[in-house]
Amino acid sequence: MEKEMEYGKDYKFIPATSIGSGVTHVVAPDVLCHTIQIVNVCLVGTKEEWVLIDAGMPHSAEEIIELTEEHYGVESRPKAIILTHGHFDHVGAILELIEHWNVPVYAHELEIPYLTGKTDYPEPDPSVEGGMVAKISAMFPNEAINIGKYVEKLPSDGSVPGMPSWKWHHTPGHTPGHISLFREEDRLLIVGDAFVTVRQDSLYKVVTQKLEMSGPPRYFTTDWTAARESVRKLAELRPATAVTGHGLPMAGELLQTSLITLTDHFDEVAKPDFGRYVDKEVH
């Protein structure tokens, strides 16, 4: 592996999983959602041209490569890897995947410092209101990784490399450069962690994957004002189907009503009552 690429010193396997781990959901004919332990990656496209969205948990490269070979063929490789953001559970296999495929990675320009070794994320907050996952979040990696020359900023016109029918939307709050992806023709939304469909701070709900719309994971979200605005922005897209970074895909009337409730009652439903980042903004 090239020396210019490295994970943070706190990079490590996290022994957390759910009953959905290893399960692949066909969300659309050209969109797959696959769960790795507690986080989702997406494959978008056909054998002729496809991309990977997010890069899973630490030490998950082999599973991701096997998944892509099963669906697209052993010799295939993505046009690009698109990152919704750079938290450890979304870039956990990125170095190995770059080495295996030699493809570019795209992220929002505000996220690039966390992907080039320049800036560490704020530490996770185990004091935040929430369940057991929040309490143990102090063990989660937060140091910047460095993928050097392989990361490029997303085009400023909202287009997504390798995904011609899609647009990216800046949805900060969980991280400064967080993005979500939307396809107008079928109103399919790939959310990242702007909101999720499981209470990610609750160990029981993470393990059982109880379907329940929630705000972004509390222990890593540092700007709740921006997070509220991002949910409002995504609700205005009126998605028919949403694939989130954590939890099962959600669609139809359940998605519509849940998103309206989350938007209208964000402070009661999503924002914690207390925590290190609740009453101050970190950028």
Rank of each mutant, 00 (worst) to 15 (best):
V191M: 09
F195E: 10
D201N: 11
S202V: 00
L203C: 10
L203E: 13
K205F: 13
V206K: 12
V206R: 12
Q209R: 15
S214W: 06
G215R: 08
G215Y: 08
P216G: 04
P217W: 02
R218G: 06
Y219V: 01
Y219C: 04
F220C: 08
F220L: 11
T222E: 12
D223G: 09
W224P: 01
W224S: 03
W224N: 03
A226N: 11
S230L: 03
S230G: 04
S230F: 01
S230D: 08
K233C: 04
K233W: 06
K233H: 13
L234F: 06
A235T: 06
L237C: 04
R238M: 02
T241M: 05
A242W: 10
A242H: 10
V243H: 09
V243S: 08
G245H: 09
G245R: 09
G245E: 03
G245V: 05
G247V: 05
L248N: 08
P249S: 12
P249V: 05
P249A: 11
M250N: 05
A251W: 10
A251R: 14
A251S: 15
G252F: 06
E253P: 01
L254Y: 01
L254I: 01
Q256R: 14
Q256A: 12
Q256C: 05
T257N: 14
S258C: 12
T263C: 11
